[in-house]
Design a protein around this nucleic acid. Structure first.
Length: 624
RNA sequence: GCAUGCGUAGCUCAGCUGGAUAGAGCAUCGGUCUUCGAAACCGAAUGUCGUUGGUUCGAAUCCAACCGCGUGCGCCA
């Protein structure tokens, strides 16, 4: 029997979980005498539909604590719980699980309230901003598939925070200041290269050549052996330990002149940056990532702040001299952090200290998120601890900013080794995106050639746009879909696959939603704008429950900085919708009220899917 | 050596603050298109959750040890 509720009488509750939590919490407190705050009913969606919609798992743990019988405790709590209008049925199973079957009317009412532009997401009232360090390209270096991660994970985290109403600063911390750039610049000058017609490929070649010829670090080798650094570093140093004094001298001289503001060099340096960023922004645009010039704040931006930063550490006693250098020591570990070299030069840790301070205190952020390669775990631990020790994580009102490193795993080759730049023929980001787009377009065109296809007869430009969106969706979903911490083996075929648990699967579900709504347009003209929702069929129930979880998922993604949860949710939504689509006729439904209700379920589903894909920076075509 | 991360189906991976019979996708086998889009759906098969011990009413999940793989470790960024 379909339960229905009209929009006018529905309570404002969007979240049945909250209603259940509150009702059971009160009952638990009443039965046990515990404070309400300690009476968590532990509500979660049921793993198995036969157990109802939600389960409450409080009884076992609580009974143990109180020396009571769990089933009896559950019985007592249910007797006190005011579940009228929320649950149809609540029964005790097994050792003391409480299985709750939500009232269809409550579900319909919640969905009706949920159906708004906000989709149940209430903006936070945070005073401070969120800074997201993302992308992190190095000037003069071609972007490779590793940069994909730092860019799109960061973009998603930024979007989710914005969706929750936060002010977000996207900070692209370019590697644009330091010896590598000077080496490249010096090499280009020696070769007499015209910087105005430079391509990034040329630049990248010059960079690598300069790296190779300029490496000779005998002093570093001795230091490394004395302090027993890792074998990786030793091997690197050994490889570098060939005569290159001239190139190195040239690079150092260039760096000194650059850093002292030599006008000619600064102009040339800027050309290298422009050349690099042109491609970065192009890739960002192709990826649908919000990253432009205004988000660039590279290492060079902080150059005037490095000296003062070191001085502050020295003055506070946290920065101490060691063999001529200045280091920060930690109470709980041997490894210090070097912040000034013996020759007076600064290091990237110094820049990160200055940048972190800037982000907290100048950008007024109470949350600073660094989306950076997992191999820099120790580095960020050092930086963050140093920042806390000196108190730069504090905002004027005493609020302590969260400093969080989101350590993403490496992209590995088929040999399970990192796809490294120096391994020669590395897969550039551009090559990956070109391939994905090409495959997407090919696929969309092939389908459009069927005269019965919804895309038949579309212009070639439109088909190309859709194909591009499909290809990019595949790549992004493949990357964002699993735990960002893990390394993954780069497999192009899997990455641009369009079937199964993929980005295009979600887009396809969305296109079907759009299609069904498009066909119903004529009828919609004289239907009420907000038809009564009814949730009776199991598939409708399943879909409704899934839809209502959306706000919680978005909050979780922000809290845990984990885009894969959103991917998993949207996959679940697509699956729920497909089940509904299979089992519940919409356009063909005879009952006009039910038809209108189901159309509205389609509309809400489409809205959530589009919103969720938007948070991933994935476009949702109406047809594909 | 010290630190740190990871071992779940043939492959790629989920598994949220411990909860009922450990789930998806790919691949394999079978079924569903003159019927709202088959990029879909339904079904079959597939597991000593690295090993051992501990905590617990209950462990893939928490703790310890061990095994295996990876990553990081002062004057590069």
């Amino acid at each position: 029997m379909p339960a229905a509720v009209s929009a006018s009488t529905s309570p404002p509750s969007v979240d049945p979980t909250a209603a259940l939590d509150s009702a059971l919490r009160t009952a638990i407190a009443a039965v046990t005498g515990l404070p309400v705050g300690e009476s968590d009913p532990h509500i979660r969606p049921s793993g198995n539909p036969q157990f109802g919609d939600f389960q409450a798992n409080f009884a076992m743990a609580l009974a143990k604590k109180l020396g009571a019988n769990p089933r009896q405790l559950a019985t007592d709590v249910l007797a006190r719980a005011e579940l009228t209008g929320i649950a149809d049925k609540a029964e005790i199973a097994g050792p003391g699980f409480v299985n709750i079957h939500l009232a269809s009317s409550a579900l319909a009412a919640a969905l009706d309230a949920f159906d708004s532009p906000a989709l149940g997401i209430t903006p936070t009232t945070a005073t401070y901003a969120v800074t997201v360090d993302l992308c992190g390209v190095n000037v003069a270096k071609q972007m490779h598939v590793g940069h994909l991660r730092a860019t799109i994970i960061g973009d998603t985290i930024a979007r989710v925070h914005e969706r929750l109403g936060r002010k977000v600063w996207r900070e692209n911390h370019l590697g644009d200041w330091g010896l590598p750039i000077a080496m490249t610049l010096a090499a280009l000058r020696r070769a007499g290269t015209n910087l105005d017609s430079l391509t990034l490929d040329d630049l990248n070649r010059a960079y690598r050549a300069a790296q190779m010829e300029g490496r000779d670090d005998a002093a570093g080798m001795i230091a490394a052996q004395a302090t027993r650094v890792g074998p990786h570093r030793i091997a690197e140093l050994e490889a570098q330990n060939t005569g290159a004094a001239l190139a190195q001298e040239d690079a150092r001289a260039t760096l000194v002149r650059l850093q002292s503001g030599d006008a000619q060099l600064v102009t040339e340096w800027q050309k290298i940056i422009d050349c690099t960023m042109k491609e970065v922004f192009e890739s960002a645009a192709v990826l649908g990532v919000q990253l432009t010039d205004e988000h660039s704040r590279g290492e060079s931006f902080f150059r005037e702040r490095l000296g003062p930063a070191v001085e502050a550490f020295a003055k506070s006693g946290l920065g101490v001299e060691d063999d001529g250098a200045i280091v920060v020591r930690y109470p709980d570990r041997e490894r210090p952090m070097l912040i000034r070299k013996r020759d007076g030069g600064f290091l990237y840790a110094t820049t990160d200290l200055a940048a972190c301070k800037f982000r907290v205190q100048d950008l007024k952020s109470d949350r600073v998120v660094y989306v950076v390669d997992a191999r820099q775990r120790d580095h960020f631990k050092d930086v963050f601890d140093a920042i806390r020790m000196i108190g730069w994580n504090k905002l004027p009102d005493g609020t302590e900013a969260e400093l969080i490193h989101v350590p993403f795993g490496s992209v590995l080759g088929a040999d399970k080794k990192p796809l490294k730049t120096r391994s020669g023929e590395n897969f550039t980001l551009k090559a990956l995106l070109d391939e994905a787009i090409e495959r997407g377009i090919r696929e969309v065109r092939a389908r459009a050639s069927d005269p019965n296809a919804p895309t038949a007869g579309m212009s070639d430009a439109d088909l190309a746009a859709i194909g591009s969106a499909v290809g990019i969706a595949a790549v992004k979903y493949a990357d964002l879909g699993s735990d960002v911490t893990r390394d993954y083996v780069f497999d192009l075929d899997r990455m641009v696959s369009f079937e199964g648990d993929t980005g295009p699967y979600l887009q396809y579900a969305h296109a079907r939603m759009a299609s069904i709504l498009g066909k119903a347009l004529d009828a919609a003209a004289h239907a009420p704008p907000r038809p009564t929702i009814s949730v009776a069929e199991p598939a409708e129930r399943q879909l409704a429950l899934t839809l209502l979880r959306y706000p919680q998922i978005v909050r979780e993604v922000a809290q845990h900085l984990d885009p894969s949860r959103l991917c998993a949710y949207l996959h679940g939504l697509a699956t729920s919708y497909n089940g509904f689509y299979q089992q519940c006729p919409v356009l063909k439904c005879e009952d006009q009220a039910l038809r209108a209700s189901r159309l509205r379920l389609c509309a809400i589903s489409k809205h959530v899917m589009k919103d969720g894909l938007g948070l991933l920076g994935i476009t949702a075509p109406e047809r594909m």
